[in-house]
Amino acid sequence: MSAAPITPATVPRMGTGFRMQWEPVQNAHVLLYPEGMVKLNPSAGEIMKRCDGQRDIAAIVADLEAAFQAQGLQGDVIGFVELAGQQRWLVWD
């Protein structure tokens, strides 16, 4: 379950039944789930697509900071993953 607190070593993965894909018509990543859909904003899309069940938060943050030449993204990433966990978009052990 997603109740465990998030640390840099947490490895988030897509929740059961959720699928993310790029939709050209909407010009956005969308998250699909049983009978529903969420259109993700660009930063949410960038975080989500790195939550592959392989990388931990530290690696995701490093990757994002390199890709967008930014610093100090860990707080934002953890904040989003926490929110996504409440919605069950993401789960971790």
Binding site: Q21, E23, V25, Q26, V30, L32, E35, G36, M37
Partner: peptide, 8 residues
């Protein structure tokens, strides 16, 4: 092609 993404 028109952008439908959920299918029931």
């Amino acid at each position: 092609e028109m952008g439908a993404v959920q299918l029931g």
